[in-house]
């Protein structure tokens, strides 16, 4: 609790020093670029120690995923593709962990694969985190029966294309070397028509776009996306046209999903940091604009360029 109050106090002091930055900006005296870095670092770090909950709005794109999973009958088969690596884990790992926990609690069967080499390792981490949850551990999901990790397969969208004919052709064995036909969860699973829902966690190419293009539009699979914030704007057109059933975009999407399925995790912890960082960026954008317009006015009156804003 002491950490919380120290962090709050630091933020109050930091907030007050912004007045000093504003005064300097109005005076046309530039502040050091590195001072902005310090502000951002504090804005990101101090909220990690706070015991506050960031406000979060409900969005239809995230709720749609929750509703779709809830409406599936228990025992439905969910295919999850982990198309990212550790670089994108801060955004995607929390939503993957929450999704797997939710799927297990709904008693669904989970089939995991990856189009990125490190995706299946991220999946194993998410599975481990899910199994540590007492309510999931109680259900005792069994490997091969309730979930399976098919591993990585190279070939990008050509792999999805091949899965449209037969999953077995693309994944003759699972990650542990077990032959496809000997894995109980995969009995009767030939192609996308035997899978009830496809969830993609992606941070680039191949990713959600390729799953929409091939699995959804070509083979009629129901696809939901979980993407990094960078990728999210590109996915919204697919969402509007119902080519994509739902979308979790970045940390905010992850936090909202965690909240919707009552699996509060890292995304909700990180959201406060993100909120503070965004506020800081907005403040400095405003300061930058003030400096710019002041320097323009000064240039017009003196006809001599003077530095302003952030150097």
């Amino acid at each position: 609790m002491a950490g919380h109050w120290i962090a709050v106090a630091i933020n109050v002091v930091v907030g007050l020093t912004l007045v000093w930055v504003l005064v300097r900006t109005i005076q046309g005296r530039p502040i050091e670029r590195r001072i902005v870095f310090v502000y951002i670092a504090l804005a990101v770090a101090t909220p990690l120690f706070m015991k506050l909950e960031a406000p979060l709005a409900e969005t239809p794109e995230v709720q749609s995923i929750v509703t779709t999973i809830k409406e599936l009958p228990p025992g439905s088969r969910i295919l999850i593709s982990f198309d990212y690596d550790p670089q994108s884990a801060p955004e995607l790992q929390p939503m993957a962990e929450a999704f797997i926990k939710f799927a297990f609690k709904q008693r669904h069967k989970v089939i995991i694969m990856g189009l990125w080499p490190l995706g299946p390792d991220q999946a194993n981490q998410a599975i481990r985190a899910a199994l540590e949850d007492p309510s999931v551990a109680e259900l005792a999901p069994e490997y091969g029966v309730d979930y399976v990790n098919l591993g990585f397969q190279s070939g990008n969208e050509f792999v999805i294309q091949g899965m449209g004919s037969a999953f077995k052709n693309m994944f003759p064995q699972d990650e542990r070397g077990t032959i496809y036909d000997n894995i109980p969860i995969l009995r009767g699973v030939t192609n996308f028509s035997n899978v009830d829902y496809v969830q993609v966690f992606s941070s680039g190419k191949p990713g959600t776009r390729e799953w929409v293009q091939v699995a959804a539009d070509r083979f009629g699979a129901t696809v939901g996306g979980g993407t990094t914030a960078v990728q999210a704007p590109e996915m919204y057109p697919f969402l509007r046209s119902n080519q994509l059933i739902g979308l979790m975009g970045g940390m905010t999407g992850a936090a909202e999903f965690e909240k919707a399925v009552e699996e509060l995790g890292k995304a909700n912890t990180f959201l406060l940091s993100q909120m503070f960082a965004h506020a800081t960026v907005i403040v400095f954008v405003i300061f930058g604009n003030i400096a710019y317009f002041r320097s323009r006015r000064r240039d017009a009156s003196t006809d001599a360029p003077t530095p302003g804003g952030i150097s």
Binding site: S88, P90, E91, A229, V230, G250, H278
Partner: peptide, 16 residues
Amino acid sequence: GYTVMSRMSLLIGRMD
């Protein structure tokens, strides 16, 4: 805006 959000998320991950 989304790109800034994404980069901040990476920084948060490192800070954590």
